[in-house]
Design a binder for these strands. Sequence first.
DNA 1: CATGAATGAGCTTTCATTCAT
DNA 2: CATGAATGAAAGCTCATTCAT
Lengths: 231, 231, 231, 231
Amino acid sequence: MKPRRAGARQLAAQATRDSILRAATKVFARHGYAGGRIEQISKAARSYDRMIYYYFGSKEALFIAVIEEMYRRFNEACSGIVLSAEQPVEALTAMIRFMWNYYRRNPEFITLLNTENLHRGKHIAKSKDAREYSSPALELLHSVLESGTRQGLFREPLAARDVYLMIAGMAYFYLSNRYTLSAFFGADLDRDAALAHWEGFIIEAVLRAVARDGVVLVADMPAQCERLAVG
Amino acid sequence: MKPRRAGARQLAAQATRDSILRAATKVFARHGYAGGRIEQISKAARSYDRMIYYYFGSKEALFIAVIEEMYRRFNEACSGIVLSAEQPVEALTAMIRFMWNYYRRNPEFITLLNTENLHRGKHIAKSKDAREYSSPALELLHSVLESGTRQGLFREPLAARDVYLMIAGMAYFYLSNRYTLSAFFGADLDRDAALAHWEGFIIEAVLRAVARDGVVLVADMPAQCERLAVG
Amino acid sequence: MKPRRAGARQLAAQATRDSILRAATKVFARHGYAGGRIEQISKAARSYDRMIYYYFGSKEALFIAVIEEMYRRFNEACSGIVLSAEQPVEALTAMIRFMWNYYRRNPEFITLLNTENLHRGKHIAKSKDAREYSSPALELLHSVLESGTRQGLFREPLAARDVYLMIAGMAYFYLSNRYTLSAFFGADLDRDAALAHWEGFIIEAVLRAVARDGVVLVADMPAQCERLAVG
Amino acid sequence: MKPRRAGARQLAAQATRDSILRAATKVFARHGYAGGRIEQISKAARSYDRMIYYYFGSKEALFIAVIEEMYRRFNEACSGIVLSAEQPVEALTAMIRFMWNYYRRNPEFITLLNTENLHRGKHIAKSKDAREYSSPALELLHSVLESGTRQGLFREPLAARDVYLMIAGMAYFYLSNRYTLSAFFGADLDRDAALAHWEGFIIEAVLRAVARDGVVLVADMPAQCERLAVG
DNA sequence: CATGAATGAGCTTTCATTCAT
DNA sequence: CATGAATGAAAGCTCATTCAT
């Protein structure tokens, strides 16, 4: 009947829903699931409590939507990675840098994942789209590792999953736990120099982990690498 | 006059305090700070809400006490590590196994740290004994790395802190995030085989990270190691 | 669009707020601030605890609102006083009767003021409208005193504030402290005769306090007055 | 058996009881009955909650004891008043000054009375010694008034009770309500000048209230008085 | 008599959620 | 769809009081 109006309405509705989702992401990331308040979310979204129930049904359903969106964005970002399989060391280095930077720039990603793991993944288990979240990052990594092996740079191919876990673990842990670690070490892990140092350390450790015995892989800025023969 | 009786009273009081602390550790580890209910804690401790306030003053103070106790235990456990500095590869391997097992056997350690980091370390900051938590593990690691270098097995010594972060990161992340990772990978990371595999992977990766160029370090079960010359 | 309906909603909301305020006035007047229970208030208002926090935010803020409303009503009542400045003795007498009757008919006024003074005025200090509470009664009194002086009935004008304090003190103290005073005197100060006697005594004392030396002012019921020359 | 020890014990016990009573007086005076905390009292008395129940039985019984002690002290103080009945104006003035100063120096007297009146005298009603509290002040006042009448200074004798109420009302109200009055007047009633002014005003008003028609009584500092004939 | 732990009812406050326009 | 009032359960915390040496 009034398509234009209906369209405008739908647009407005979508905007409301989006702003709630965005606000919820922030609030849950900051305070956890139990600590995240419905009212805080609705106010941050400049909307009303009621709207949250209208669009999402419950606090838990909202949290699930937040987790889903978080994965969607991560995979979307992963899809954007372009690597030259011909230069596996460069590609691997770029992959590490990507993950490190993604974690750094999306701190909610880390705290939301921690929150979800605190709850033993029960929300992701309820998600209908859970299956779709297997990341393109893994496949990329797999082909890079294969290429490196083929070129004699990497040893017999490691499981992409293991390398992924290694990269993610080293990057994630440093950022996720930097507050307690800073207290533990008596040093500020948030300083630029410390961050840069750790990024370099991850790269070095991963290259050493994948390198063929007797081969030393070096990643130089900007993203250069060399092959140094031994013996 | 009545030392035994007075002692009994104090003992009972200490027992009450301890059981509250133990219960709080479980509950906060399971549900986070905001999600952890005072009533749940007092019931689990077979005590009363009032006693929590009697002994600790507030929910937050109780949480701080939990965090402090958690660190104390960890450092206590670290103090028990005995390593033969003469066999640096074995020592380093043992160190890794220790941390991996500590995380596995003390899952609350992980979730409590995550919770504390969610709150940006604000509780540890309020702790009076925060300074004392610097772990003996770091110093041990330092001497092991030095010994390895001296023996020509390890390259010029890496910072103990970096190696510690590498080990902790790889071990911690796997265990902390296994629920979301299992969904992400579509595989169960909790299976014994998967756990054993990852423990081995960490050891291998760390040994490769610290090895002198051209040296391949291998850690064999049970805790054997060999030196394989290359070239 | 739907002004009547929207209006009805707002009206109902206002009614809820009002009934809470009314109930709170009663409860705080009866039991003091600490002794006044939130639940008692919400039940008396036929509402819910939650609504008190919805509309007022906290127990203290509710008490402040009660104090503000109490002052507002008092000043509103004072604004209704009509005095003929030409007949200062009658006017002053009427003023005294007004205050006496106001205290008698609004016993909460007295106990709320006592409660607020117990807390050293800390709530009124937090009130934003505190400034506006200076009563019209003072100005009225001032003009009555001036008129009396001009007519040669009153001595050189006393400060309206002092006369106000005298009236208020005598009336307030009798009513505020009648329970302990009754025990102290071994007599019932609440009997009609006793009350009427005291009202007359205040009037007489005040007239004597303001009278020009040598002039005896008499206030007869109903509100008549004569001037009796002396010497 | 061990009289000295028993005596010492009794003394210590009395000291404990007294310090609790003193602490309770302060706490109830400061926070009212409901607002006064048992723990606060026991801590202020450097004793234990349990001791309060040991010596007084309950919070209410403790409050009754406080009220009784308060009256006892007041009457004790009144008993110390020495007035020369031959100089009724001076005597009356001295009486007023006594009451004004007693109120000023014993602010707990005022707030405790207010608290007791808030509860409609229910505690004093439960006191067994309540009868004994009729003050010597009334009798003193009575004889002063009679003497003044006999000497032709005061009019036909007023009821001592009325004059007492007048003095008490004016003095008590000013001090009791000074916090709200200061806000109401926009002036500080606690300043020395203001206090001295009001003391003088009370004296003047009372003298005028009791003076024989045509007689002007003046009370000069220090405690002098003159008789000024009119006409 | 003194001491400090224990008790459970009850307090203020907050929560997620639903109702009524 | 939006708005804001309403709801009742449950949270953290405090209270006066009693128990057990």
